[in-house]
Write a protein that binds this DNA or RNA. Structure first.
Length: 858
RNA sequence: GGGCGCGUAGCUCAGUGGGAGAGCGCUCGCUUCACACGCGAGAGGUCGCUGGUUCGAAACCAGCCGCGCCCACCA
């Protein structure tokens, strides 16, 4: 080791992530291990496509968690010797990005309309040039081993061509079509949005009862509505066919107040006779349910609320041009005047809101582009049903299947400027859809762009060069794992499966990992607007990237989990402990090869056995997507078994003049530990790896260890287990009797089976074990240990009076245990029906307690 | 309305049929030559409630209470 590195080890008693991380990251990138050559087949290689972050976004806790998970997977695969590519890139994020730029323009006092489409789009590109690199830099800080050399963007020319081609092919297949259909209109963004971009919110409304006179003149039919202004677009009334109150009115006609339109009264199953008056006004133009009913009964479709949120010319003149809220008041007032409002009551219900703008969605009939999903869904359902794609946890397969089995058409077009413009041109009545613009004069291109998630659906293969048959595609598609939070299972995961199968003939990945949602510490959603967000970069600065990674992995066990900074601290402590354990080893060992075969002593064979088991367990947990268990098991095994016990047991030999044998074991132990921990904490492990003797290359590219069951040793584990129990028992005694400082308690070993570990027992418990045969006269107490006890003899270490009190307490405790076990064994049913081993174990314990009690003179 | 998940130590969470666990916090003791981001020893829980299955339930079943999320065209 070079002198300055040696000095660093000697002097630095704390691990300092800030100093290490950038240096280590540069070594990884310099070695090119994140950028595999596109060779071999996807079968033998390994790949993950990152969920592309919004191009102008910055790293939030969800990114940090999912980044930690994916990086762990990629690093394990890479160490297993598979050519591993973590596909990187960013998403143009249509609505989100357009809004950001619009906001920035607003601050300059310009609207996008003043700028014009072309100039506006140029501004967005400019925005991306300025802000687009932020999140990439942040992923580096996290240690993410993404393939940064091969960064994609959903608005790259190649990517746009792939998107266009997919649209054209689906159009040619007849799945994409243009239609007048009821859509979710976002009045804030002035665009149609899909069902998945709508969220229900509970709203306090007024439910109005309105009388609609019958044409026959024989009274009126009363309907209930929370949207009286939409009555101007009513084209029918529906009642339940089973509802006897209204059966005589079916086929009759009502007259729409304020408008005078004739409204047929129809029978439809959808109407709930129990609700309101049991009569439903039908507004096909402004209510999705009414739209369906209207189509079933061939009712007229009238649109009175325009895309600008104002009443259209289809409304009576006095209401035209009014905003919706204004119109509501005006309509109610007009109805009141005519005495047609027969009741009002407060009414709480769920109302669709735009996920993006937060505005109440205005359902209206609009001419949009749609994609029929049923044909695409069928094979995507099959892929999960037959297990070619597996969800982790499994329960999400059901969520996915339920959605696909009831899938509805997808509203594709968005009235935005930033995004993939539809490859559609019109000329009079003609429509042209194609990859290349039409020839001839007079064609006008559809101004709309595609839903952002349309291009996202192509992510795993469009990033690799599809539709060209590229080496990248052959080497890395299909990918292996897709990891994400549950909120985009439908928006993204399902659509990738559908598009993947449709356009490549292959499922896009085999395993879908759905990770926890991390909430704010108080249980609310973590969000910037609520002020509940916690910045992962801030945590990296305070605790280090390894600490953050460990903490996030450790806390992400169930569906939702509260952010717990303590877990990040635990990660920092672990990194520090690892650093210090390494200092102990590396500053003392002889320069020998790491060698588990050098394990001769009991404790050596014990730690080797334990680490082999840990190796097996960790691989199981990593492969089973149980990352929190893996992180915490590694923590526990390293801290307790390795540091608290093995290193303490090995110290005397490490400090001895000839420490070659133990050095071989220690180096092997360290090597194995670093490898197992590397996917969780890549920086600190890589740094320590570089300080180990010998020329060993990068840990990130080192060979992943396979557990060797031949080195499992139950007998040795049991023996050390006994030793640990005995040491703990003696230490407890010391503590209880108030033994002073490091003064040894004198004692006489009166227990079987400690021949080989007598010195360990004495040293770790701070007892002086003497061979004193001078009778039992001065035995102050007997401390029970497995297989016997230790007779305590007078010494300078403590006051005997204290000891007597303690023994009395212990006797009482043992008597209680004996009684409990006796009671259990007296139960005939237990003895007869419980498995023999269980009963036997209970008998064994009883004997043990009796024996211990007897030794204490009870 | 349907579905998923959660309710275990003061806090955040493990534990899915054989005597309640971890980290933090708390108490006591320790300048023990890797680490005070440390070492040692403790205290602390009728495992949401009620029934049931079982020799045995925190775990399995049923019902209830509370909380979170997703899906859904009762105006």
């Amino acid at each position: 080791m070079s002198d300055d590195r040696l000095k660093l080890l000697q002097e630095r008693t704390r691990y300092e992530p800030a100093e290490v991380e950038s240096r280590v990251f540069a070594r990884w990138e310099g070695a090119g291990i994140f950028h595999p050559d596109p060779e071999g087949t996807a079968e033998e290689n390994y790949s993950i496509a990152v969920p592309p972050p919004n191009v102008t976004g910055s790293l939030h806790m969800g990114h940090a968690l999912n980044g930690s998970i994916q990086d762990l997977c990629i690093r394990v695969a890479r160490m297993r010797g598979r050519r591993s590519k973590w596909i990187y890139g960013t998403d143009h994020a249509g609505i989100a990005t357009q809004r950001q730029v619009e906001k920035a323009l607003a601050e300059e006092g310009i609207t996008k309309e003043e700028l014009g489409r072309e100039a506006f789009v140029e501004r967005v590109w400019e925005w991306r040039r300025v802000h687009g690199g932020t999140i990439t830099e942040q992923f580096r800080r996290l240690g993410a081993s993404l393939d940064y050399h091969d960064e994609r963007f959903t608005m790259d020319d190649d990517y746009v061509r792939a998107v266009t081609l997919v649209f054209v092919r689906l159009y040619e297949k007849g799945l994409i079509y243009r239609d007048n259909y009821i859509v979710n209109w976002d009045p804030g963004l002035r665009t149609a949005i899909s069902d998945l971009e709508v969220a229900q919110r509970t709203v306090e409304d007024t439910l109005y009862s309105i009388d609609y006179p019958l044409e026959s003149g024989s009274g009126a039919i009363t309907v209930a509505t929370v949207r009286p202004e939409t009555m101007l677009a009513d084209t029918g009334i529906a009642v339940n066919p089973e509802d006897e109150r209204y059966s005589r009115l079916i086929g009759e006609t009502a007259i729409l107040p304020l408008v005078g339109r004739r409204l047929p009264i129809v029978a439809d199953e959808h109407v709930d006779p129990e609700f309101g008056t049991g009569a439903l006004k039908i507004t096909p133009g402004h209510d999705p349910a009414d739209f369906e009913i209207g189509r079933r009964h061939r009712l007229d479709e009238v649109v009175v609320i325009g895309e600008d949120g104002r009443l259209t010319d289809a409304a009576p003149e006095r209401f035209r041009g009014m905003e919706v809220d204004e119109a509501r008041g005006a309509v109610v007032a007009a109805l009141r005047e005519e005495g047609l409002i027969s009741g009002t009551r407060p009414y709480e219900h769920d109302v669709p809101h735009s996920h993006r703008s937060g505005r109440r969605v205005e359902p209206l009939i609009s001419l949009q582009w749609f994609c029929d999903m049923e044909d695409l869904a069928r094979p995507a359902i099959e892929a999960v049903r037959d297990g070619r794609i597996r969800f982790h946890p499994e329960s999400y397969a059901k969520v996915y299947l339920d959605w696909l089995e009831n899938i509805r058409p997808w509203t594709l077009s968005r009235q935005l400027w930033w995004g993939h413009q539809l490859p559609v041109w019109y000329r009079g009545e003609e429509t042209y859809v194609g990859v290349d613009p039409p020839s001839g004069e007079g064609w006008e291109r559809d101004p709309d762009v595609l839903d952002t998630w349309f291009s996202s659906g192509l992510w795993p293969f469009a990033t690799l060069g599809w539709p060209e048959d590229t080496a990248q595609l052959r080497a890395f598609y299909p990918t292996d794992v897709l990891s994400t939070a549950r909120d985009i299972i439908f928006l993204w995961v399902a659509r990738m499966v559908m598009f993947g199968i449709e356009f490549t003939g292959s499922i896009p990945f085999t395993d879908v990992n759905i990770h926890s949602v991390i909430q704010a510490p108080d249980g609310r959603r973590m969000s910037k607007s609520l002020g509940t967000g916690i910045d992962p970069l801030d945590l990296i600065e305070r605790y280090g990237a390894d600490a953050l990674r460990f903490g996030l992995l450790a806390m992400s066990s169930s569906q939702d989990v509260r952010f717990n900074e303590g877990k990040v601290q635990q990660g920092r402590d672990l990194a520090n402990k690892l650093w210090n354990a390494s200092r102990l080893i590396l500053l003392r060992v002889s320069e020998v090869e790491p060698d588990p075969g050098a394990a001769r002593e009991l404790e050596d064979r014990w730690i080797v056995s334990r680490l082999e088991r840990l190796t097996e367990r960790v691989a199981e947990l990593y492969d089973g997507f149980r990352f929190s268990h893996a992180a915490l098991d590694l923590y526990g095994a390293f801290w307790s078994e390795l540091c608290d016990w093995y290193l303490e047991l090995a110290k005397p030999r490490l400090y001895a003049e000839d420490n070659r044998a133990v050095s071989g074991v220690l180096l092997w132990v360290l090597e194995r530990t670093l490898k197992l921990l590397h996917p969780v904490m890549p920086f600190v492990t890589e740094e320590i790896w570089s300080l180990m003797p010998g020329e060993r290359g990068l840990l990130a590219a080192a060979e992943w260890p396979a557990a060797d069951p031949r080195r499992f040793d139950e007998a040795v584990e049991a023996e050390v287990e006994r030793l640990i129990e005995a040491v703990t028992s003696l230490r407890r005694y010391r503590d209880e009797v108030g033994a002073r400082g490091s003064a040894p308690v004198r004692g006489r070993l009166a227990a079987e089976g400690y021949g080989g570990v007598r010195d360990h027992l004495a040293r770790l418990s701070r007892f002086e074990l003497v061979e004193d045969a001078s009778g039992n006269g001065d035995v102050l107490a007997t401390v029970p240990i497995p297989g016997g006890g230790v007779q305590v003899l007078p010494s300078e270490a403590f006051d005997p009076a204290e000891a007597e009190k303690r023994i009395a307490a212990k006797r009482a405790q043992l008597r209680a245990e004996v009684e409990r076990a006796e009671r259990k064994l007296a139960n005939q049913k237990f003895v007869e029906r419980a498995p023999a081993v269980v009963v036997e174990e209970e008998r064994r314990k009883l004997e043990e307690y009796r024996e211990a009690l007897r030794r204490l003179g009870g």
